[in-house]
Write a protein that binds this DNA or RNA. Structure first.
Lengths: 404, 404
DNA sequence: TATGCTCATGTCAGCGATGTCATTCGGCCA
DNA sequence: TGGCCGAATGACATCGCTGACATGAGCATA
């Protein structure tokens, strides 16, 4: 009652734009403002002083300079030296107190702590880390398409684990642009991130070899790097797809369609391979007839219609990612009982819809990536590891129907 | 064909654990390794030199020291001075070339650029930002519960916009712990973030007042701060909920249930208020009978069962967040045609399920927050603004049914 | 009483980059 | 031919903090 779970209320909208439905702009916010973006309220003048407040300013003519720029604010941000002056000790002693390294006489400590509190001193990590070529406490994460929640789940798992190692995470994205990868990574390295977790997008990652040789831990996730030998964390794509198809063939299915993205992407290539492997095991070798790996990954619905209406229609479908799964639902509705289907990637409400899937623990995925980082920080010279996130079939009905 | 959308294949799993279904651990990855977490492959010794490679090392006995520590790697990371030495110029000139500030003779520039390339020099932003009390180019984002994709969507929108302003984003989370807020924020400030975007969790944010007075832009999102007068970006929670209920009452509904989280959280409080407002407009004042704001936000299903089976069962339901919406689907299935319902927050497949919702543009939400930051960096002394993200009703069928 | 030690604290340099100011060197004009 | 100017470049200090080392007081031991 008193300590509620604070985030319980935060909404979780879908990323897909409100589709296939009439939209009523009726309930715009307040009532005024035809502004296209948002409603601005002047914000009632609450309890707040103009700008130059800051308690106990050492010496500053608070009268002049109407535009007190941030960087040159009246007392400015307190430094070690400021604290030292106020406490009547040397900067070094303040440093000792703040970092709790050496022993300091109790009375001195008290005086310093008082000064720290009074000036609201906050150590500058930038300066601290500058010494000795040290690097920051942040780990850079380079996502691919920032609009894909997949990466967030991954990031969430990582953040949590990294936090334990006392590290924070810097988020950046390549915005789908392969040519941006090196630039984005470069900007992170300029910040001297402690380590780098990358979802490879560019055709080649060998440009990172130098950085790796310098000792920066680098971990590639979801897709393997090219021309770079580092730790990787990948899904069991092939095994997962094969297991799904195996379970379908065990029920007697032979005409199984595959709906996925183009195979020149690692993830899809692997899943497609798993699909073919499993079919080959039961003697079905020519699967091209059943495969739909459409051009841009957007037009799954059309591909599904197409394959379901061909001469010898499939009795089962493997949708190779959750967007394909969603497309299948849109194409055939939620009550197509005569068709068996299994999707790769779990998704929200799949349980309600009785959609069997190949699932895996996304949080664990992120955790493993973070673990790689932490491990490598400890033993920089260990040989690169290739971790694989296991997947498992989740039976919910749609994948357990025998052929009609 | 040749340039596929790289992230098309990334999966988008649900955050909910695979529920209500039999799980077959059958298809674990490779076949070996009963390890609980993941499969490790020794990673075939690919084309990779041990550690001390780095081209053109100035002077280093590459024979000794088998354990070349990261920080003290052979040539180490190149600095301005290294480049200067190689190019035969002063450090300052290198700086000029790198930052492209002053004019430099073409021949000199060429020499410096060659040296930069050879040593793979990368300027150290930590050092650069140290000067003059400057601050970094990063903006800190303090999420609430990191397990909630909502914040990542928000973060994604922010990241994209901040990127335009040449800023990067540092992500941290309070992990649901109100007492962690000040600590987490402190750690960001120690990194001298350029600005701070916070989802307030603690009971009071007045501790940030000093930082604000120092000129650090602070923006609160999703929930308003307490004891601090800064820019805010909030959803039109109340108006959205009211609009949903208005549309139900217009159809003749009067017995409308409310399923939400406890009201001591801003978001829920507002949505509940909107619900009550709208019902009051049609003369329904005693709504307590229809409200279910269960204790921990986890037990929506039970609350739904409860309210739907009470004496005078409601003819419509407002689910106040998307977890409640999912719970409704689990509780009543996907074909309950005699019940009208509308959910706050859009969600994936809501279109397939014909689920009417109160939706909003999450990307826009983040964009606005970023815009606040950028605006404030430009005009630090402008009065705080209160932005509201508009919401709109999306009609998909479930909310357009008249009472039975 | 001198020696040696520990504890508390201070001095100083330097991390890497850059703002400020100084210096050098050709010309160019009077 | 002298002086002046601007372009190109360098020297130096400095941002905030901390490692290495120094200092000095107090105290116990030989």
């Amino acid at each position: 009652m008193v300590t509620p779970s604070p985030a319980d209320d935060a909404p979780r909208p879908s990323s897909s734009a409100p589709s296939s439905a009439a939209t009523t702009p009726a309930a715009s916010s307040a009532s005024t403002s035809p502004a296209p973006s948002a409603t601005t309220t002047p914000a009632a003048p609450a309890s707040n002083t103009p700008v130059a407040s800051a308690a106990t300013a050492p010496a500053a003519s608070a009268t002049t300079a109407p535009v007190a720029s941030a960087a040159t604010a009246p007392p400015g941000r307190a430094t070690l030296a400021d604290v030292a002056r106020l406490a009547g000790v040397s900067a070094k002693t303040v440093s000792r107190v703040v970092t709790d390294t050496d022993t300091v006489a109790p009375s001195t400590r008290a005086r310093v702590e008082a000064a720290v509190a009074e000036l609201r001193f906050r150590p500058n990590f930038l300066a601290r880390d500058l010494r000795h070529g040290a690097v920051s406490k942040t780990v850079g994460f380079v996502m691919g398409d920032i609009t894909n929640p997949f990466y967030f789940e991954l990031g969430a798992g990582m953040e949590r684990e990294l936090h334990r190692g006392g590290l924070t995470m810097v988020l950046t994205a390549t915005e789908d642009d392969a040519s941006a990868e090196e630039r984005v990574v470069g900007s992170l390295l300029a910040q001297r991130v402690r380590a780098l977790v990358v979802v490879p997008i560019a055709a080649d990652q060998s440009y990172l070899e130098h950085e790796r040789s310098l000792g920066t831990p680098i971990v590639c996730v979801d897709r393997p790097p090219v021309g770079l030998d580092v730790d990787t964390v990948l899904l069991a794509n092939r095994a997962g797809a094969a297991a799904a198809v195996d379970s379908l063939t065990a029920l007697g299915h032979r005409r199984i369609a595959y709906i996925g993205s183009p195979g020149d992407l690692y993830t899809n290539r692997e899943r497609l391979a798993g699909y073919r492997e499993a079919l080959a095991r039961v003697g079905v070798h020519d699967t091209a007839h059943w495969e739909r790996t459409d051009g841009d990954g957007r037009d799954f619905e059309a591909a599904i219609h197409d394959v379901l209406h061909q001469a010898d229609a499939p009795t089962a479908v493997l949708t190779a990612n959750n967007r394909a799964s969603a497309a299948l639902l849109r194409a055939v509705g939620t009550d197509r009982g005569d068709l068996a289907y299994i999707g790769f990637d779990d998704f929200d409400l799949a349980d309600v819809l009785g959609f069997s899937v190949v699932a895996y623990d996304m949080r664990e995925f992120g955790r493993l990536a973070a673990q790689c980082v932490l491990d490598r920080l400890e033993s920089p010279d260990a040989p690169p590891r290739a971790l694989e996130v296991p997947v498992h079939l989740v039976h919910r009905g749609s994948g357990e129907r025998p052929p009609a």
